[in-house]
């Protein structure tokens, strides 16, 4: 085979490979959403994280702003320490609150961030103080029944 034909074919092959790489990155993967851009880490302690896993989304107002970097047990406070990698494009006030939420009824769990009003912004390594752990169904029902019972008692008291 002539040198030039061979080079042409190899060129076509490499270009095809490159295009498939671009397709995988932008059309299939999240490269267009800045998936690999730089991030900063913030920490939050939850008393219960439910089914939250590594790489779960971190959303604010429904928009993906980062991902859970690691989940570990804090042996000092006996709760869960969650590290979140937040896209450096987004900045949040110091008094932002974080809660473990569920998408849909049976969907995956994610962390929702609600921005506060502080002037200072969260920096790399900061901790979010205002947290709301995962809702555990059993506790919720228990609490509901307990409240109902208390309310019932109070009402009767007023009527008397």
């Amino acid at each position: 085979m002539a040198r030039s034909t061979l080079n042409l074919w190899v060129g076509i092959f490499v270009l095809l490979g490159f295009f498939s790489f671009l397709m995988l990155g932008f059309k299939v993967g999240n490269l267009s959403a800045g998936g690999s851009s730089s991030t900063y880490t913030v920490i939050a302690h939850f008393d219960n994280i439910g089914q939250l896993k590594e790489r779960a989304p971190v959303r604010s107002a429904g928009v993906l702003v980062g991902r859970v970097k690691s989940v570990s047990f804090d042996p000092v406070h006996y709760n869960a320490e969650v590290q979140m990698a937040i896209d450096s494009k987004y900045h949040f006030p110091k008094d932002t609150s974080a809660s473990v939420l569920t998408s849909g009824i049976l969907g995956e769990q994610y962390i929702g961030l609600d921005a506060g009003g502080d002037d200072k912004m969260l920096k790399d390594g900061d901790e979010i103080k205002l947290v709301q752990g995962a809702v555990v169904l059993e506790r919720l029902i228990g609490q509901f029944l307990f409240n109902k019972a208390q309310d019932g008692g109070a009402d009767k008291g007023v009527q008397k």
Binding site: V28, G29, L31, S32, A33, G35, S36
Partner: peptide
């Protein structure tokens, strides 16, 4: 697909 497939 884009939401689930991570580039890295």
């Amino acid at each position: 697909m884009q939401a689930a497939v991570d580039f890295r």
